[in-house]
C-alpha cells in the first residue's frame, strides 16, 4: 500500500492521464461496437476540452457544470455529424471523420476565443484524480448497464449484418446516430477532464496523432470492456515513462525505443491477440 502511495505521490499526473486515456478508449469502443470506424473522437475531445476551459476561464462556471455542458455539446456535434455520414461505411467513414477532425483543428487554430495556435493557458486544475476516476467508473458502469439492454443487442446486430438488422425492424440509422452520440458524450467527458487536469490546451493536442493514440489504446486493450480500456491506456501512457526511466538509469539514448515498443506491441496484439490484451487474459482464465 505504501508503495502505491509513493508511486502516486511521484506520478499523480500519469495516473490522471491513464484515467483520461481510458475514458477516450471507451468512447471509441462505443462506435466500434456498432461496426462504425468513426475516427472523430479526438475532435469531440478537443471541442469539449476547449468549451469547458472557456466556460471556466471566461464565465467562471463550476467544474461539474462545465463538464456537463461540454458532454452535451460534443454529443450533439456527434449526432449532427452522424447525419451526413449515414451512408458511409468502413474506410470511407474513417476518412470522412478524419477530415472532420482536421477541420475542427483548423478552426481551433484560427479562432481568437480558442487562443489560436498558442491555445489556452491557466485553466484551473480542479479535475483531481478522484474526479477523473469517478468519471471513468460512471462511464464503465453506464456501458455495462447498457450492455444488458435491447439497445446493445440492436447495436451488435447492426455491426454483424445491417440488412438482417433492418429485416427484424431495427432502425439502423437511429442506432448509428445514438452510438456516435454516446461515444461523443464520453469523449466530451474525457476532453473536459483533460482540460481541467492540464494547464494548457493547443489545437495540436487534438490532431490525428491523438486519434491514433486513442485507437491504439482501444485496440491493444481490447474494445469490449472497461478493464481492457484501462489496460490499453495504461500501457500507452506508461511506456514513455518506462523508457525515460531506463534512459535515466543507463544514460543510453533510448528515446526512439518507446515508439518501437508501442509499434511492436500494437502489431503483436493485432496479429496474435485480435481481442486485445484483456481478451488474452480472459481466454486463459
Amino acid at each position: 500500500m505504501n508503495a502505491l502511495v509513493d508511486f502516486y505521490a511521484k506520478h499523480s499526473r500519469l495516473v490522471d492521464q491513464i484515467g483520461v486515456n481510458a475514458i477516450m478508449a471507451l468512447s471509441l469502443s462505443v462506435s466500434l461496437r456498432a461496426g462504425q470506424l468513426a475516427l472523430a473522437q479526438a475532435a469531440f475531445m478537443g471541442i469539449a476540452a476547449y468549451l469547458s476551459a472557456i466556460l471556466s476561464l471566461n464565465a467562471h462556471w463550476p467544474l461539474l457544470a462545465s463538464i456537463a455542458l461540454a458532454m452535451l455539446v460534443s454529443a450533439l456535434v456527434a449526432a449532427l455529424l452522424a447525419y451526413p455520414v449515414r451512408r458511409l461505411r468502413g474506410v470511407f467513414l474513417a476518412i470522412a471523420t478524419i477530415g472532420f477532425g482536421e477541420i475542427v483543428r483548423v478552426f481551433a487554430n484560427n479562432f481568437s476565443i480558442t487562443g489560436g495556435a498558442e491555445g489556452l493557458s491557466g485553466i484551473p486544475n480542479d479535475a483531481t484524480t478522484p474526479v477523473i476516476y469517478v468519471g471513468l467508473a460512471l462511464v464503465a458502469v453506464a456501458l455495462f448497464a447498457l450492455s444488458r439492454t435491447k439497445f446493445a443487442l440492436a447495436v451488435s446486430l447492426v455491426r454483424e449484418d445491417e440488412h438482417a438488422a433492418r429485416s427484424v425492424g431495427v432502425d439502423v440509422g437511429a442506432i448509428r446516430t445514438l452510438s456516435l452520440a454516446l461515444g461523443g458524450a464520453i469523449a466530451g467527458l474525457g476532453g473536459a477532464l483533460y482540460a481541467h487536469s492540464n494547464f494548457f490546451l493547443t489545437p495540436a493536442d487534438f490532431g490525428f496523432g491523438r486519434m491514433e493514440q486513442i485507437l491504439v489504446a482501444c485496440v491493444i486493450g481490447g474494445v469490449t470492456n472497461a478493464a481492457g480500456a484501462v489496460l490499453g491506456a495504461g500501457l500507452i501512457t506508461l511506456l514513455p515513462e518506462i523508457t525515460r526511466a531506463v534512459q535515466a538509469a543507463t544514460g543510453a539514448n533510448v528515446d526512439f525505443f518507446r515508439e518501437l515498443v508501442t509499434g511492436v506491441v500494437l502489431l503483436g496484439v493485432i496479429l496474435f491477440a485480435p481481442a486485445g490484451i484483456s481478451g488474452l487474459w480472459r481466454k486463459r482464465a
Binding site: V219, L260, T262, G263, L267
Partner: peptide, 16 residues
C-alpha cells in the same frame, strides 16, 4: 479496420 491499425503499427515502428 484491423489492417488499417496494423499499418499504423508499422508506421510507428518505421518512425521509431
Amino acid at each position: 479496420l484491423v489492417p488499417l491499425i496494423s499499418s499504423i503499427g508499422v508506421a510507428i515502428v518505421i518512425g521509431a
